[in-house]
Nucleic acid binder design. Structure first.
Length: 709
DNA sequence: ACCCCTCGAGTTCT
DNA sequence: CTCGAGGGGT
């Protein structure tokens, strides 16, 4: 995207001519692509080679990327024949696809086994069977069979909701459309879609010859292939699958152990990993891990470690979950791949809260199949601790295989004695002093150094605007990072309220937005429409968008739920400036909100400039109640207490859900309690409830009761 | 007083 | 995804 900061174009500028040319080419390409689409999809008779077709497509996409305005124009190249849909449909997982906790060494493996044994109340002499299997580096996917027939396939997504990739999964030949033998009525098989090294190399060679996209590693190639909107492309990609887990099953479990389940999957005709092994204790597990490490290069596909699972499913049930990870399984990761490169420089970024964050600019280097050129350095202490100096040779790795970090400096390669890195004590963007706050109680300095510029710091202003527009806040489409920076630079948007007066002011301006580089009539109109659509926004999103320190999504929801409307929060928070006030106590008493958060809220509303901005903003935006509290649910008006471990949701979720249904959630059992929801490990509350004759139910019974509301 | 969990704020790359 | 710190339960 060429949102050039420097130039608002005048109508006579030469770029205008090139946009005109682009428009003509765009139209011509669109027509040609449409012709081929019809020939290919509807008549099943391709009129060009795939490579030629791809080249046309690429040119078309490149044009739209260069001139975003074109993307808004109607084109026959989109949505013709069975040409790709715009997006995948979302499908909710009936049973969430959770993540795994990690361990990194033998001690932690031992610890995992101990924890399992302790939780189950088994003596030291009792052994627990644990399966070990390679952790495939692909992408996980859930495939649903009903009466043995494949009905749909969904990517993991965020664990709760994924994308419908049924058409693509059906092109993978080793995944049966129909299960063999006597499969359960409903069976959701979960496993990993991956690509072998050999296929990956061949695919990249082909892609290169055809001028197509070259993939960085097999995992990206598999992901790119599975997420093709056009399944005829996926069909040409050699994908594979290993089944290792399951979601919903009805009509009887095929086995009572982890290994039995996987063996059953194999009988149903699903591919399973031949290396799965049953271990007796940590010694076996570590032996498996070491052996697999030796064989790693010969497997023919990428793995990033081992997964251990408690074999007995009854034990798995008892162990349950901690937040989003099962207590009965863990991933043992291979050490992160490392690479050596040069530190070219250190850049200081300024965040929304003024935090100065150093980022290492690196000589680009491939680590774990991805080219890395930046790495976070966290804070100034980190730089000092590792004695990192500009020009050093450094070892880089990707932590958790995602975020690059600098492990250490190779001091031997250092020439002479370059100066230690001097962390700036002024903000690089606005020149204000940058200080480390001192904790009043402990007298210790905060690890982060912050710009004190506040309102006058342009970097902070831009970050605040970004936050305001972000997906979980106001979610204004068309106001991405680039656009916000652009409008801020131009002086058109300084604070959130300015966003909503942009259109009115634009009408009176000579240099209209639609004439700026990167904008056109259509995209400008779309932007204004997107802004208009947010003049009403749920209260919790509104509070979150304000960017109050320590008020993220969850705390914003807590405040919104407690106060109901913005005016109530505002009045209370202003009065809460005095720490001894009743108002402060009210905020403090909200569950999940303590002293520090309450103070942060009060601090925000006490500031005059925040108050003035709020006045301006509220003229433009109306916060709406966040969600209705049901009055007709089976639990409306009832007082509920949760105790013990909850396995299907967090306490907060359970609480929020109950409150949404009109129930009151209390912390302890009393005569007023109507229902006690008791999970495993429930203690005194359960006894008390039983004594008081309070109705006690399990988490599942509770969920069944509120189901369908 | 401790310990565990959750939340916020920071970051990378496709 | 990770880190540190806030909050609440034991």
């Amino acid at each position: 995207m060429s949102l050039d900061m420097s130039a608002a174009k005048t109508p006579a500028s030469p770029e205008k001519a090139s946009l005109k040319d682009a428009r003509a080419e765009h139209a011509r390409l669109g027509a040609e692509i449409a012709k081929h689409d019809i020939a290919y999809h509807q008549n099943d008779a391709p009129t060009v080679s795939d490579a030629d077709y791809d080249a046309l497509r690429r040119r078309f996409d490149a044009l739209e990327k260069e001139f975003p305005a074109l993307a808004d124009l109607p084109s026959p190249a989109r949505g013709v024949g069975s040409a790709p849909a715009q997006k995948f449909a979302k499908i909710r997982h009936v049973v969430p696809m959770l993540s795994l906790g990690n361990v990194f060494d033998a001690d932690e493996v031992q610890e995992f086994v101990e924890r399992v044994r302790r939780f189950l109340g088994l003596g030291a002499e009792a052994s627990v069977d644990i399966t070990a299997e390679p952790k495939i580096d692909g992408l996980s996917c859930s495939i649903r069979y009903e009466k043995g027939e494949l009905v749909h396939a969904v990517t993991r997504g965020d664990g709760f909701e994924g994308e419908d990739v049924t058409a693509n999964v059906k092109t993978i030949s080793e995944i049966p459309r129909k299960l063999h033998g006597d499969a359960p009525a409903v069976l959701e098989v979960r496993g990993e879609v991956y690509m072998t090294h050999a296929d990956f190399t061949a695919l990249n060679k082909r892609q290169e010859a055809e001028g197509g996209k070259v993939f960085a590693n097999p995992r990206n190639a598999a992901a790119g292939s599975l997420r093709q909107l056009d399944s005829s492309i996926t069909a040409k990609r050699p994908l594979h699958f290993f089944a290792y887990a399951w979601g919903e099953i009805t009509g009887g479990m095929p086995a009572s152990t982890q290994r039995g389940m996987v063996e059953a999957f194999a009988k149903f005709g699903l591919p399973t990993n031949p290396r799965m092994t049953l271990c007796r204790g940590a010694g076996d597990m570590i032996a498996f891990f070491d052996k697999l490490g030796e064989d790693r290069a010969r497997l023919g596909y990428d793995i990033d470690g081992v997964v251990y699972k408690v074999n007995d499913l009854a034990y798995q049930d008892r162990l349950g979950f901690v937040s989003r990870a099962p207590r009965w399984a863990v991933a043992h990761k291979f050490p992160a791949e490392q690479a050596t490169t040069l530190l070219l420089g250190i850049e200081i970024q300024v965040g929304r809260t003024g935090a100065l964050t150093p980022v290492a600019k690196l000589e680009p280097v491939t680590v774990g199949g991805v080219v890395v050129s930046n790495a976070t350095l966290h804070n100034e202490d980190e730089i000092a601790r590792k004695d990192i100096r500009v020009g050093d040779a450094v070892v880089v790795q990707r932590a958790g295989d995602v975020i690059p970090q600098i492990v250490r400096v190779i001091v031997e390669k250092r020439e002479g004695d370059p100066p230690k890195y001097a962390f700036p004590d002024v903000c690089p963007k606005c020149g204000s002093a940058a200080i480390r706050e001192i904790d009043e109680k402990t007298g210790e300095a905060d690890v982060v150094r912050r710009c004190t510029g506040g309102l006058i710091c342009p970097a902070q202003a831009v970050e605040r605007l970004r936050h305001f527009c972000s997906r979980n806040a106001l979610d204004i489409e068309g106001l991405g990072d680039k656009q916000i920076e652009f409008f801020h630079e131009k002086g058109l948007i300084k604070t959130p309220a300015d966003i909503f007066t942009l259109e009115a002011r634009d009408k009176e301006r000579v240099a209209k937005i639609e004439n700026f580089e990167g904008f056109g009539k259509v995209s400008t109109r779309n932007l204004f429409a997107a802004i208009e659509a947010r003049r009403e926004v749920e209260l919790n999103r509104f509070i979150f968008a304000l960017g109050i320190r320590r008020i993220g999504e969850t705390n914003a929801r807590r405040l919104a739920r407690h106060f109901g409307e913005f005016a109530a929060l505002r009045a209370c928070a202003r009065a809460a400036g005095d720490p001894a006030s009743e108002a402060r106590a009210e905020i403090n008493n909200i569950s999940g909100v303590g002293d520090v958060v309450a103070e942060a809220v009060a601090d925000f509303f006490v500031e005059d400039h925040n108050e003035r901005e709020l006045d301006r903003l509220l003229e433009q935006v109306t916060p709406t109640p966040m969600e209705s509290v049901a009055t007709d649910s089976p639990v409306a008006g009832k007082t509920v207490v949760f105790t013990g471990a909850l396995e299907r949701m967090t306490r907060e979720e359970a609480k929020a859900q109950a409150e949404r249904l009109g129930a009151k959630v209390a912390g302890s059992v009393s005569k007023k309690t109507d229902i006690l929801v008791a999970g495993p490990g429930a203690g005194s509350k359960l006894t008390k409830a039983q004594d008081a004759g309070v109705r006690v139910m399990s988490e599942d019974e509770w969920l069944a009761m509120i189901a369908g509301t």
